[in-house]
Design a protein around this nucleic acid. Sequence first.
DNA 1: CGAAGGCTTGATAGACCTCAAACACAGTGG
DNA 2: CCACTGTGTTTGAGGTCTATCAAGCCTTCG
Lengths: 247, 247
Amino acid sequence: MTLVSSEAHAVLLRKLESIALLSDDERTAVLGLPLTVKDYRADQTILQDGDRPAACCFVVSGFVCGFKLLPSGGRQIVGFYIPGDLPDLLTLHLRAMDHSLSALARSRVAFMPHQALSELTGRQPGLAAAFWRETLIEGAIFREWLTGLGRRSPYGRIAHLICELTLKHKAVGPAEAPTFRFPFTRQELADAVGLSKVHISRILQELRSDGLIRCKRKQLWINDWEGLKAAAEFNPAYLRLRSDPVL
Amino acid sequence: MTLVSSEAHAVLLRKLESIALLSDDERTAVLGLPLTVKDYRADQTILQDGDRPAACCFVVSGFVCGFKLLPSGGRQIVGFYIPGDLPDLLTLHLRAMDHSLSALARSRVAFMPHQALSELTGRQPGLAAAFWRETLIEGAIFREWLTGLGRRSPYGRIAHLICELTLKHKAVGPAEAPTFRFPFTRQELADAVGLSKVHISRILQELRSDGLIRCKRKQLWINDWEGLKAAAEFNPAYLRLRSDPVL
DNA sequence: CGAAGGCTTGATAGACCTCAAACACAGTGG
DNA sequence: CCACTGTGTTTGAGGTCTATCAAGCCTTCG
């Protein structure tokens, strides 16, 4: 754990501004948050089911995922988190985690003590609302994943996941070409969308041969955004981005 | 719409006290909320995807469900709501609904204007935390449903749903016998757990012939709570009930 | 360069969906 | 009180989709 990092503050600020308009006061209050930063290797655990951390974290760089394990051995990934995301904000009011958090790739994670966060949200109701809003948006993403698992075809589920990641990247990152790091293994994708890794493999090939995407060396390119959206039946409204971007 | 109803206030209060300890001040503040009440027939729509209501609601009596429709025709039920539940608290900070709300049976629903709710949470930070906590618990339920759809067997999914409904009933209702109203059609259950209604029918029979449940005339009895929990791999921690009840 | 892990490909089995018809049940009207 | 109707449920049969297993291949990394 090292202390303070203006990079981390910048990432958090960009995230908050992607979901709410901030005043100057609120901006400086965020920049004053005491942060500690920690680096994780791929597959390293950040938080375990049942843990009661004294701080909330957010992703500074890399990829993090949340997952639940069933006694019978199954794993369900309940969220992919990219820079800016706050995967355990819930511990501020729920105390214990009901799932685990793990790095999917080399990642840097910043921690804000609950106490500092409580003070901040007490002083700045606008920021409290922004953080609450962020947890509500995560709820909206859960509903969307739920309808994917329940009622979308395997092909549509993966297309949808790619659409979602694309827009989440665009929301916090610079407006780059339609490409981003895609470090997931087939098994991880399978555990996210409720299929087997073999089937994931075949469906990714289908998406490629249909000319919708291209991927190589843990990088993904969108070849046909409109086609992908159509295959996914994707409607970006649930992400509540301030600027609904068009690719 | 009729005005005020001490029954509705009582339901809301019982709900809030099931998730947080309230002070006397907070209790009286809740009882002072202006409420309007409306009755719905089975299958009547309460709120539609995209609506921007000026009030939040909660169920006073009956059953409500939230669902998303896909352009291709599928329906995914994303939540069942029983008396005390607040299915659209999210509109307080997210404005527009990203799914629809509909009554599953004759139901009474109470509405609290956003304005009154904002004032209340501004004055009473403890209540603000309680409402936030409620939305976080709903998020926890989504994660649990997600792992059900992704990684539980059909048999386990339904068993899990029944376990969840049982504990939710016990949290806000009197400690009755292990039975409650179960007005869902097979199609509704199917749309909740991502299966076909035919399959739901067969699995309910299996649950019955295994001696776990009994159901007739839209009423359900738990015959073997431990067996049901085991079949569901049910761990009630995610519901965050103040008193983790044992049946 | 070698080893380990992940990816692809093929074959097989079985779970679940779909379709279709018979059946139960509640509500309605004679 | 009883037929009648509509909706929901059950049962059966067939076909498809997806999991599983197993083998070979490729990539990555030490």
